[in-house]
Amino acid sequence: MIIGLLSLRGGVGRSVLSRALAQKFSAPVYELEVGLPKLWPAEEKEKEVVWGRLSRFKREKCDLCGDCVKQCQFGALSLEGETIKHRGPFCHGCGLCKEICPKKAIELKEYQVGEIVYGTTDGIELFAGRLLRRTPLEGTVIKKLKERFPLPSRAILKAPCGLHGEALSGLKEAEALILVTQPWDRLTEEIKLFGELTQGLGLGGMVIVNQVREEVSVASWCTAYGLFYAGEIPYLPGFQGDLLKAWPEGEAFWDRVRQHLEGGK
């Protein structure tokens, strides 16, 4: 089974849970948070550069007609006084500005935008990517990662933060989604959004509440939105990264997660 891990915000333990699930399911982890990856192989075995197209502006040819500014839907170009300002970090490399420019003042050029890697950390197989330039080309890096290292029948996909857009773009192959969260003032709202998301996608959804100091009451909310509530992982003082070792009392929790995901509810 291919499992996708999501969260509405960062710092809730997706990386830790990804590693624990990889150990429990004997599955590799795909780090899709390429803008700021937290998981990277300690031992790199294969590595490749990712190239992407970005626009390059030739100011000496520009006559300030502004056609490119009107055409760009990403805000990468703007007319400011007597110049066209080009914002590289907003460029998606679509090429529409190049096609419409009457003076041929814009060209598309191949740049090294990221890298992908395969390796291991503590016996866990990791496939990861990261951006090397300030661009919105996360999708280009993720696509290259999956093309170079095709998904096996079992895999853990760690998505970026968020419950839409970029966070979901790399989860097309997921057969089940897990929301990883922590106690906070918008927890029930987060569960509601996740429930609506899984229903819309027609996928099974599971909720795990991490770093719990006091009991939380969200089981009824999960049931209301057709979600399976796996339970809570307690706050573990001095925790160093290996959840299975740090929480040996959690065997029943992991059995419950496995049974549900494998269809043995």
Rank of each mutant, 00 (worst) to 15 (best):
P41N: 03
V117A: 12
G202K: 05
L96T: 07
L187V: 13
A27S: 14
P136L: 09
P234A: 06
R87V: 13
E262Q: 01
W254D: 10
L131W: 08
F239R: 00
P248N: 07
R213A: 07
K45E: 15
T223L: 15
G95Q: 06
A219P: 00
K61L: 15
I233Y: 07
L137E: 01
L6V: 15
K24A: 12
R19H: 11
A128D: 10
A105K: 05
E115H: 12
I178V: 15
R258P: 02
G123F: 08
L261K: 02
Y30D: 11
E80F: 04
L203V: 06
D63W: 15
E115V: 00
I106E: 11
E43H: 11
G66S: 07
R258N: 02
D67K: 14
A159S: 15
G195C: 03
Q199M: 10
I2E: 00
K61V: 03
E33Q: 10
G123C: 09
G119A: 01
G35I: 10
R9P: 01
T83M: 13
P150D: 10
A252L: 08
E173W: 09
F253S: 08
Q73E: 13
Y111G: 01
K45Q: 15
R258H: 11
A252T: 05
S217C: 02
L236G: 06
D185Y: 14
S78F: 15
L171F: 02
E43P: 03
E251M: 06
R258Q: 11
A167K: 05
I106A: 10
E43S: 13
G4P: 09
V49A: 12
P237S: 07
P150S: 09
V180G: 02
G200P: 10
E110H: 12
S15K: 04
K265M: 03
G241L: 08
E99F: 00
Q71K: 14
G195M: 09
P160N: 08
T135R: 09
E110S: 09
L6T: 13
D255I: 06
C222T: 01
E31Q: 10
Y235N: 10
D67L: 15
A22K: 10
A155L: 04
E48A: 13
G13R: 02
S7L: 12
D185N: 13
